[in-house]
Amino acid sequence: MSIRDPENADVRREAVHGLPAWTYDNSELLSLEYERLILGTWQVACHQNDVPNPGDYMVFDLMRDSIAIVRDADGTIRAFHNVCRHRGAKLLDGRGTLRRRLLCPYHGWAYALDGRLAGVPAESTFPGLDKNCFGLNTVEHEVFLGFVFVRVAGEGPSLAEMWGDYAKLIEPYRPETMVGVRPMIDQVWNCDWKTAVDNNQENYHIPMGHPGYHRMLDSGMGGFGNSFGIGGSVSRHKDRPSPNWVERMYQDLAPKVLTHLPEEKRSTWQFFSMLPNHGIDVYPDSMDFFQILPLGQGRCQVRLGLYGQADDRREMRVLRYLNDRINRMVLAEDRWLSERVQKGLRSHGYNPGPLSIYEDGVKELHDRVRAACPVTTLTVAPAPGTVAARDAELAAAG
């Protein structure tokens, strides 16, 4: 959950409002957002240790695109469009280990782990076929803070440039050596992807929406952010023990179990956001990524992977069990809140209200949406079938 510091000298003084309600429930706009805000930005696919050995793969599915992350025979991580170059069949699903090749389930075209087309059944029936021209299409990728990110289309700054010095806040936890500590959560929420991201961009709702966090953490409303859309906030355990036994036990155990961390870090929770649709949360015992992807009109996909240092101590297992209980409740609360907002956005009685300075992370997201899709500046939805054309008109008008 990311916010901006209201004490900052550059804080805005004017009133601002969010996006109009129609922009949260329009399939034509969703297509534009997918092309301009998702495919052209860095998207986390997995952790590098989700594919630790040669032949290991993991598939990352977006709304219309599928990416295969593969560790090749030399141990190099590669990213490919997960589609056969022959007739377009999807090659892989889920995660697993390949022996030597990726084999198309349709006609048996075979690809080496580095993407080269290695075999074609009945090759003589393809006159003039040059296998060198039909390897798997690659996808731009970077490994950053241990995570494998892909950028399907377009170009822009590297992840290191975007994060800058904020990465130093995470590096002491050695994220590159972490491993998955439980299966990835993958959910479908009945709300627009922006509704869910809005919720993740501010701490204003914590006292009301997340009573557990409010009981155990000193969650300030202020935070930090930069021009690349990286923002965050820092929370610490309250001195007063929580009345809830799960939260109270975590507060008590963390400083005793996590002796490899500096004392202050044992009670510190850090929440980062990466626009347009990511969160990275660093807990004393583990670290997660939180990703919100468009899935369809009024629906989004939420992926959450949790990672930590390999540690089989009983007390660490207990600590992570407590963390999981706390944050599964937070996830359920966020889902309930986001789906409740989505229902309200469809009401004829709603017009966008003013945004608090505590919600400037929401404002930043909305500014990016307006810049990428000028049609979202319209207070009333264009007639069905005309959204793309109206967007083009507004873009041409400047």
Rank of each mutant, 00 (worst) to 15 (best):
I230Q: 04
F144W: 11
V246Q: 01
P354R: 13
R248K: 13
T379H: 13
G180N: 11
L62R: 07
L62N: 03
W22N: 04
Q342S: 06
M329F: 13
R370H: 09
R215G: 12
V148S: 05
E264T: 12
L62Q: 08
N49R: 09
A68E: 00
K238T: 06
E14F: 07
L322E: 05
A122D: 15
F80E: 00
Y204P: 04
R325P: 04
L102K: 04
H141I: 02
V257P: 04
T97A: 10
G88H: 02
E393R: 05
N26K: 00
M216S: 09
A89K: 14
G305N: 02
G223W: 03
G220L: 15
W22Q: 06
E33C: 09
G180K: 10
L32S: 04
C104Q: 00
F134L: 10
M162K: 14
V152R: 02
C133R: 14
R266Y: 05
P382S: 09
P105W: 00
D72S: 09
V257H: 00
G128A: 14
R240E: 15
N323T: 14
G298P: 08
H141D: 08
P172T: 03
E315A: 06
Q251D: 05
T379N: 14
L322A: 03
A73K: 12
F144E: 00
F290Y: 12
K238H: 11
D74C: 15
P294F: 00
F149C: 01
L253C: 04
L293D: 05
Q48T: 11
L37S: 03
P243E: 03
E33N: 07
I67S: 01
F60I: 02
G398N: 08
E155F: 14
C373H: 01
L394F: 02
N199E: 15
H47A: 00
M329A: 14
Y250P: 07
A371M: 08
D391I: 00
V152Y: 04
L394D: 02
K90A: 12
T386K: 07
D56I: 10
F126K: 00
C133Q: 15
D367F: 12
C84F: 01
D10W: 15
G154I: 06
D93K: 15
S27I: 11
T41L: 10
N190F: 09
D56M: 09
S242Y: 07
W42L: 04
C46K: 02
P54L: 02
I280M: 13
R320D: 02
S2F: 12
T23P: 07
E123G: 04
F144Y: 11
D10S: 14
L62V: 03
N26D: 07
L345Y: 01
D74M: 13
D218K: 04
R248E: 13
R236V: 03
A388C: 06
C104Y: 05
D312L: 09
F290E: 12
Q201E: 13
G225P: 08
T376A: 01
E142C: 03
F134V: 06
G94A: 01
L37H: 05
T268Y: 05
D65N: 11
W269E: 08
P262E: 10
E393S: 05
G135R: 03
P262D: 15
